[in-house]
């Protein structure tokens, strides 16, 4: 395995009162140093669960990883013991979450919490750990960091709290940072600051970034490759340029059409009809077919679930309706660099 982090055929299930939910169903993706993978999808599509599976943070016993591998630096994380996982989690693979208020402990100062994270992974004296905490706060642009380490989470604004979370995640210089909707709860101006910060830190430290979001505009700004998830599966996976130039899956196309854009004067938007399917009762065949403008009458779309195939160099897709799908080889991760799509 030459790739830094690669998950293959991951399946994660949850037992709920109402039945078994397969939240992630055969998902594969990879990310390399200095690159950003964007995972887009709507709520409940499994994008966060795939990240939590990597971190070994699936709540037990209700949740269980039932298949697949998570390769990190040549070892399968799913085969490691809890103790070995702890060495990697937070140290080499770090994660930040959407809501910085609920991810921070309200009764400790932010300094305390960063120091705790540092001392868990590095053998440092408390004093040195504090210095490192201040330094990591400075690195993420917290003004007067030397004083802010003594602040409690409620004394900071949303943007500052998210910076603290990032500082904590980056304090051990991880090789991979998984950011789950890091800017969704923030105002646009703060979002712009945080995205700029992530871009800068990543370029500086050649960190691999996995960004989970529902916002295609954020993806366009920061990702190199994009995986589009729908109903527990990846339906399209390619470079950000290829996806924005020529989205091939009807779901991706629908997302693009329903996107309100600045400067576009149109009172009615093109909406995707229907609702996101309930994971307890996924439709048969292609899970998008009841909402799909192309596939709703097609017998095959209704009965057979399409697998991912390499439809073009660097572009994998799961849709029977795409031209050339039949003749394309099965492929779940687009390894080859995509060819430039000609304009027009």
């Amino acid at each position: 395995m030459n790739d830094l982090l690669q998950i293959r055929g991951l399946c994660t299930e949850f037992r709920t009162e109402d039945g078994l939910v397969r939240a992630v169903d055969g998902v594969s993706w990879q990310v390399n140093p200095g690159r950003t993978l964007g995972i887009v999808g709507e709520s409940g599509c499994g994008k966060s669960v795939s990240a939590l599976s990597v971190m070994g943070l699936i709540p037990k016993p209700s949740g269980e990883i039932v298949g697949g591998q998570v390769w990190f630096k040549g070892q399968d994380l799913l085969k490691l013991t809890e103790r070995q996982i702890r060495e990697i989690r937070g140290n080499e693979i770090a994660m930040i979450f959407q809501e910085p208020m609920t991810s921070l402990n309200p009764v400790f100062t932010v300094g305390n919490q960063i120091v705790e994270a540092i001392k868990l992974h590095q053998k440092l004296r408390t004093r040195d750990a504090w210095d490192l905490a201040v330094e990591s706060l400075q690195r993420v642009g917290v003004p007067s960091a030397a004083e802010r380490v003594y602040a409690y989470p409620h004394q900071l604004s949303g943007g500052m709290r998210q910076r603290v979370m990032i500082a904590m995640a980056l304090s051990c210089h991880p090789a991979v940072l998984i950011a789950d909707e890091p800017t969704t709860a923030l105002d646009v101006t703060i979002q712009a600051q945080i995205l700029e910060l992530l871009r800068r830190l990543q370029a500086g430290e050649r960190m691999a970034l996995v960004l989970i979001t529902h916002d295609l505009a954020v993806i366009a700004q920061i990702a190199h490759t994009v995986a589009v998830m729908y109903a527990s599966r990846i339906v399209e996976y390619t470079s950000v340029e290829a996806l924005f130039d020529q989205p091939l899956h009807p779901y991706t196309q629908g997302l693009f059409r329903s996107l309100p854009r600045l400067g576009q004067k149109k009172r009615r938007l093109d909406a995707i009809g229907g609702t996101v399917p309930n994971p307890l009762a996924f439709p048969s065949g292609c899970k998008f077919h009841p909402r799909c403008p192309l596939g709703c009458d097609d017998k095959r779309c209704q009965s057979v679930e399409p697998n991912l195939r390499l439809i073009r160099p660097g572009h994998v897709l799961a849709c029977f309706k795409a031209a050339g799908y039949e003749d394309s080889p099965p492929c779940d991760i687009p390894t080859q660099a995509p060819t430039e799509v000609s304009n027009g």
Binding site: M160, D187, Q191, A192, Q193, A220, Q221, A223, L259
Partner: peptide, 25 residues
């Protein structure tokens, strides 16, 4: 102006040139 420039542009070839204001509200 700041607010408008901070809106992420859904185009990978045009990076948002945000004149993000210093500090928070």
């Amino acid at each position: 102006k700041t607010l408008l420039s901070a809106v992420p542009i859904p185009d990978p070839r045009t990076k948002t040139a945000c004149q993000a204001p210093v500090g928070d509200v």
